[in-house]
Structures are given as structure tokens and as C-alpha cells.
Amino acid sequence: MTQTVVITGASAGIGRAVAQAYAERGDRLVLMARGRAGLDGAAQDCRERGAADVRTYQLDVADHEAVRAAAADAAAAFDGLDVWINDAFVSVFAPAWEVSPEEYRRVMEVNYLGTVHGTLAALEHMRAAGRGAIVQVGSALAYRGIPLQAAYCATKHAIQGFNDSLRAELLHDCPGVTLSMVQMPAVNTPQFSWVRTRLPRHPQPVPPIYQPEVAATAVLWAADYGKREVNVASATWKTRLGNIVAPGLLDRLLSTTKQGYDAQQTADPVDPAQWHDNVDKPRDDDRDFGAHGVFDDTSKPYSVTLWATMHRPALAAAATGLGLAAAAAVGIARRR
């Protein structure tokens, strides 16, 4: 069945990869982002991959009225909305005391309030229809903050809390609408070339790094099956487990130069005069960056953990079958 899918932050990175994946299914796509060149590139990608239809809306998700108007326009054009993916975000890499109040506010407006705005716009149509799927693109950092990313980590924690409250409300009032959060590991997206940074060297995702198509696979699976939460890679699980078992030890590990600071930077120095970020205005307004960042050579194209999660019933059945076969073999041997 052809679906109408809305994706914010669709011009690059994970959002772009998600749009491409839905296009290959032949779905109708509603793409939202700030950058004109990135949006146009994403739309062209999706049409070439077989999307049934593509509509683009150049907007800032921090503007609730713009998001709401675009949602209403798309819903009218496509007779409703089936899936909504919230992915848009910005970030500032710096010690917490070097981030200004205005920067904290901006990151919160885009990441957290942008997610709220998208979710409310989706619910306006999905609750009326009694069905739909909303997926928040989250992070392992929704559970565990790390140094140099206080503003970003705070927003992911906020989204997690918002989701917990909303999920219970939907189960009570509108169980036909599912709400998922996909907790990402480090992903090779263009964000690391356009975040606002005060670090001495080029920002990078903390290894191991995964390609955005891995993230997209998890997002589509979560939307298809209404999964409450999906942890995409073993690094996500390890981060969450470590924060439960030994949060104090994790504090100290992350405070070390090697674990908490060097792991978030390459060896390449940053020239502040040449570095341009996307916090206040898009970097992809006149240039299309695509889905991938600059770490293709060191990024994994698959996640064994995600594969196992997606095939858990089959793996459980196989394990049960092997157990029964082993028990039968033991029984036969004893009778002999």
C-alpha cells in the first residue's frame, strides 16, 4: 500500500537516506528542510528512485505555524498523512560554559521544539483518522550526555521525556497512532562539517561510525511495526547499559582526553575563519551535501545488532528448534 510520508530534516544525512528508502518503495513523500539546494537534490533523488509523488516545503521546524501549514497542505493534497519522521536538528560543539544562552535556546527550538511542532502537526491529522506512525530520530545521547555536546544532549533527553508522556496518552486516547524513537549510534552525516564548533580540530562522530542507510533501515522498520524504541547498534546498547550500571565510572571515562575529547575530533585542525555552520541558516541552501558525510572510509554499512533486533522472532524460533533437537538427540542417546 502506498503511504504518504513526511520527513523533516530531509535535505541531508539520515533524513535524506530515509527519504531515499521510502522512495524505493514507491511512496508519496513530503520533504521539509531549510536548504533549497538540499531539498531540490532530495526531491530529485526520490523521483529517480520511484517515489509516487514528491512535495517539498522550505521551512524551519522551529516555526510551528510553518510546519502546521505545510502539514495541512500535504494532507489535503494526499488525503491524509500516514507516517511522520522528525529528524531536523542543529548542534554546537563546545564546553558547556562556552555555549551562549542564545545558542542553547536555538538548539532547543530546532531539536526539541521542532520535534514537538512536527508531532503536533502530525497528530492533528492522524488522531482524526485514528491511525498513523510517528518516529523520532533519537540518539544514545538521549540517555547519556557526553562532554562538548551539552546543548544537543539536553534536547535528546527532552524528546525522550516528551515521548514517554505522549505515548501513554496515545495508548489511552488513540491507540491506532504509534510513537517510536530510534536511538542512533554515531552516523556518517554532513552534520560534522557544518555544526557550530569551538573545538581545535574537525568534529567527528565517536566511533564506531555507521552509514546513514543503516539508520534509515531502523527508522522504516520502527514505523512499519510501531516499535516503541529501537537501539540501532551495539554502541547504543553499551552506552545505555554503562549509564545504568556505572554512571559515575562513565563520568570519569568521558572526562579523559582520549575517551571524551579526542574521540570527538579528527587530527585535522579547524580554521575558524573558514568554518561555516548551519545553526542560524542552512549550509545546503546553495549546495547539495547529500546523505553521507566525510567519513565514508571508516563507516560501517551494516549493524549486526540491528539485524538481530529485526529478526528476533526468527532467531528465537531457531534457538528453540536447536534446543529441542539437542534434547531429542540426548534422549535418543540415553535410550541406546
Rank of each mutant, 00 (worst) to 15 (best):
A42I: 10
T239S: 15
A133L: 06
D40W: 01
V195F: 07
H311M: 05
I14K: 03
A42E: 11
A140N: 08
S11V: 08
D27I: 01
D296M: 13
N278M: 12
A128M: 12
Q136D: 13
Q44K: 15
T236G: 05
D63T: 00
D87M: 12
R127E: 12
C174P: 10
E98H: 10
A142N: 07
H64A: 14
W84Y: 10
Y112V: 07
L39G: 04
I7W: 00
P175F: 02
G80Q: 01
V30P: 03
W84C: 08
A52N: 06
G145E: 08
G138Q: 02
R228F: 09
K156E: 10
A158T: 04
A42R: 05
A62S: 13
D296G: 11
D297F: 08
V18K: 00
H157L: 07
M184W: 00
P175A: 06
F89V: 12
E103V: 12
H117Q: 00
V279C: 12
R283G: 14
V230N: 01
R49C: 13
R47K: 14
E109A: 15
R131Y: 06
Y302V: 10
A215L: 00
G13H: 05
P272T: 08
A76G: 14
A215P: 02
A142F: 02
Y143T: 10
A319H: 08
D288F: 11
K258N: 14
V279A: 05
P190H: 00
T217Q: 15
A23N: 03
W307G: 10
V30G: 02
V92W: 03
Y302S: 14
V330D: 08
A186Q: 05
H157S: 11
M126V: 04
M1Q: 14
V232M: 11
V230E: 07
E169P: 07
